[in-house]
Computed example of a mutant assay.
Amino acid sequence: MGRNSILKMEGDNVTFEVLEYDYLRGSRDIGSALGLFYMREANIKLKQVKVILNNASVKLEAGALHFLKGNIEMDSKVGGMLGLGKKLFTSKVTGETVFKPVYRGSGEIHLEPSFGHYDMIKLNNEEIIVDDGLFYACEDSIEVGAAMQKNLSSAMLGNEGLFQTRLKGRGIVVLELPVPQDEIIKYTLNNETLKVDGSFAILRKGSIEFTVEKSSKSLISSATSGEGFLNVFRGTGEVWLAPTQSIYRKLAISGLYGMTNPGGSSNTKE
């Protein structure tokens, strides 16, 4: 069984790579063999993130480490009582784990294999706001923190919560996506407006203002249209959408039968 590189990005003495396994063939019973057969038919493959350090350091999601090789040490990097308090606050409001362990040195790090989906983005002294759970790994130069919604409507009606995860600095970030990479739509806005009926905008960067607004000017029109509130993104920057995310949720809950009358999201999570 081999692994093939499907995505690679190099930073400052750090290389991130997404490896994809060939089909798994190690089943010892009929039940798991059938499962693997259907996975092969559906082209579902196991993936694993690999990190190569050359006298450098990387920050990981807690619990992501699978194994490592070389002269590499782990540092929880609490930063004293002030740092601990900041991490506890960020964890509480974003849902992210408290500690992002830092591994420094030279060698290879392999993260936990999964059937998930990954993408990478390189930040150049900028920041991105992402949904909870998207952060997976980054260069140590990236700061992982919390971004507060700027108005009450965004927090109460946008299904995103009062806080989201902010990634800021210069370096590479690895994201664990809710859908395959080629199903992500990346919109570049140039002093424009993007309106989304649902909570499937997973990332934004640049000078983008996020608000929640009625789909029409009157409450009666909103009620009769069946749309209710929309997530609105205004400004200049980039917004990532995962429009197929709700489809996978519906399939997991009700199977193909639930897709015969898909209806609308009405700005609610499935």
Rank of each mutant, 00 (worst) to 15 (best):
H66M: 01
E10N: 09
I142V: 12
R3G: 09
I185K: 12
F89W: 10
S153D: 05
I142P: 03
L88E: 06
R40M: 15
E108P: 13
R234L: 09
S225R: 11
R40S: 15
K100P: 01
D132G: 11
R170G: 06
F67Y: 14
E41M: 15
S106P: 09
S225Q: 11
D12C: 05
H117S: 11
K59L: 13
I52A: 03
S141L: 08
I129R: 03
P243R: 03
I52H: 03
E213F: 00
V102F: 02
L175N: 04
G206E: 07
G263R: 01
K69M: 10
V49A: 00
Y118P: 05
F37Y: 15
N125K: 14
A223Y: 10
G169F: 04
G116K: 06
V49N: 00
V239G: 02
F115M: 11
T211D: 15
L19E: 10
S246Q: 04
G169I: 04
G2M: 13
E183G: 05
K195S: 12
I121W: 11
G83V: 04
A137M: 01
R166G: 08
I172S: 04
Y23N: 07
G85K: 14
E192Y: 09
E270A: 00
I220M: 14
T260G: 07
V58Y: 02
L46W: 07
